[in-house]
């Protein structure tokens, strides 16, 4: 098929940036979207132009490196899939495809369609862990975890940190990402000791970079792992309790 691409080009973080239009003839159905861009890039190189910068690594939807706004949808039109899992067969001959980077103040553009997502690391560093220094752990089966709870924690833990939730959210809120990490740990018995300090620190860090959630639910739709906004609700509750919690009594509820 033959396509026209309208792609965001921006030389550097400080450059103004603009859209460029490229013809992409001879694209095959079974190519992935990123392979289509690879082909376009190789042609650009051969023609002496600079290839389009976009990021990817695993190309199977697990590392969270890729991320493109494709025709106004984060990761493109297929639900529950990252950009790298998108295949050209969902497009038609003659389509015009607009490709843009994630846009949010917390995700500054580095170049073209690549953005900086360090803010996510800062959020995790502020509390997204269980303090369990190596070697101190008791036998893994000492602590029982009901299957339903383990499954729910796993649902949250499936987040790949891609940032599509922020890109899709009309408020540029990072609530889905943050709540996924907070709740992954808060739903497990191991995570209880730090439950309230964790949610407090992570949410505060999140708020220093991103907007606030008004429950649009757009993030869940964009999320390649279909993480549920229920986790946002759970995080909100934990956060508000954390503000007024007498943490000296925390040992009584574990």
């Amino acid at each position: 098929m033959n396509l026209t691409l309208k792609v965001w080009r921006q030389e550097s973080p400080d450059a103004a940036g603009r859209f460029e239009t490229y013809d992409a003839p001879g694209i095959k159905d079974d190519m992935s979207f990123l392979e289509m861009l690879d082909v376009v890039n190789e042609r650009l190189i051969e023609a002496g132009d600079e290839p389009i910068t976009f990021e990817s690594d695993c190309r199977e939807g697990i590392c969270g490196t890729c991320g493109l706004m494709i025709n106004g949808r984060a990761h493109g039109p297929v639900k529950g899939a990252a950009a790298c899992q998108l295949h050209m067969r969902v497009f038609n001959d003659g389509d015009m495809i607009t490709i843009e980077p994630w846009r949010a103040a917390g995700f500054p553009v580095i170049k073209d369609c690549a953005v900086d997502r360090q803010a996510f690391d800062r959020i995790v560093e502020s509390g997204g862990y269980i303090s369990a220094p190596t070697g101190a752990a008791p036998d893994a089966n000492l602590q029982l975890i009901p299957k339903d709870a383990a499954d729910a924690a796993m649902d949250a833990a499936a987040c790949i940190g891609c940032g599509a939730c922020v890109a899709a959210c009309p408020n540029s809120a990072a609530q889905l990402f943050t709540s996924a990490k907070v709740q992954h740990l808060a739903l497990l018995p191991q995570g209880q000791a730090e439950r309230y300090s964790r949610v407090k620190n992570m949410v505060d860090t999140m708020e220093s970079f991103f907007g606030s959630c008004t429950n649009h639910g757009e993030c869940e739709e964009a999320c390649p792992k279909e993480i549920s906004i229920d986790f946002i609700a759970m995080m909100n509750r934990d956060y508000v309790s954390a503000m007024g919690k007498n943490r000296k009594l925390a040992g009584q509820h574990m």
Partner: peptide, 11 residues
């Protein structure tokens, strides 16, 4: 170690 660190292994 992994269970203590919150890895949600299947149960």
């Amino acid at each position: 170690q992994c269970a203590a660190a919150g890895v949600p292994f299947a149960r």
